[in-house]
Amino acid sequence: MPDYDRLLAAHPFFNEFQADYLHQIACLATTVCYERNAYIFHEGDAAEQFYLITRGHVMLETFGVERRGSISIETIEAGEVLGWSWLFAPYRWHFSARTLEEVEVIVLDGVSLRYMCEADPMFGYALLKHMAVIIMQRLQRTRLQLIDMYRADGG
C-alpha cells in the first residue's frame, strides 16, 4: 500500500496541512487507475469523491443536442485536483470527467472529509481555504477563456 501520508504531503493542495490532519486524510485514500476515454464521474451523479490526479489528463465536459457529442470545458492534469461538488449541496456532479489517456488518481472519500470539516472547524477552514484558491484559479482561467483574446479583430 502506498505511503499516503507522504504522497499527500507532497501534493500542492495538501502540503501546508498539519501532519495529524494528513494522517487522518491518508486513511481515506485509495489509488485508482483509468483507461483512456473512461468516465471518472458523470454529470448529475452523486458526488462523493475528491480526486488528486497523479498521472495523465482529464477533460471536464458537458453535452447538448445542438452540438452533438461532448462539449469540452477544461483540461485538468497531473498535479491538480478534480471535483468539489462533494463539498457543496446537493452533492451532485455538475459536469462529467473523462480521461484523455491512462490516468492515475488518488481518491479521497469526500463524505468523510465533509464530516471532518463539520466536526473540526480548524480543519474545515484549512480545507475550504485551499479549495477556494482552486475555485478562484479556475474562475480566473474561465474568465480569460471568455474574453476570447485571440479574436481576429484583436479582441
Partner: peptide, 17 residues
C-alpha cells in the same frame, strides 16, 4: 485551445494554465 471542437483530443483551457 480556448474552445474545443468535438474532434479535438488535446488540452482545453487558457494558455496560462
Amino acid at each position: 485551445v480556448d474552445r474545443a471542437t468535438e474532434s479535438w483530443r488535446g488540452s482545453v483551457g487558457v494558455v496560462t494554465r
